[in-house]
């Protein structure tokens, strides 16, 4: 178990990066289509949002500033939803 918050953040980021890459390769190599592919895309965007939150909180130090961490988290979530909306329009 990693006790250092920076090392823990790094390990989480690596895990999330690998998860999104594996997910994308799975979409490429299997017959994911339609809603399944869109769901996988949504998962990739969710992972991107989590990675951005970790960098802001731990690398940039917003963990010590809850007001700003919350604010950035909300704006990033809204932005991820905008990207998700733009991404899903072609399959609607």
């Amino acid at each position: 178990m990693l006790r250092d918050p920076l090392l823990r953040a790094w390990a989480l980021l690596i895990g999330l990066c690998l998860a999104s890459t594996v997910l994308a390769l799975a979409i490429e190599r299997t017959s994911f289509a339609g809603l399944a592919a869109t769901g996988a895309g949504a998962a990739i965007l969710l992972l991107a949002w989590l990675k951005a939150r970790i960098i802001l909180s731990e690398y940039l130090g917003l963990a010590a500033a809850p007001f700003w961490r919350r604010g950035f988290g909300i704006v990033l979530a809204l932005y991820a939803l905008l990207l998700l909306g733009l991404y899903t329009i072609p399959v609607l």
């Binding site: 997910l23 895309g41 991107a48 951005a52 960098i55 991404y87």
Partner: peptide
């Protein structure tokens, strides 16, 4: 270091959108 983390932050958003979303 903050500038460097900003570069990092941009990449973790750019990477999935350009390379992974199909």
């Amino acid at each position: 270091a903050a500038f460097w983390h900003m570069v990092d932050l941009v990449w973790v958003l750019l990477f999935p959108v350009i390379y992974l979303l199909r």
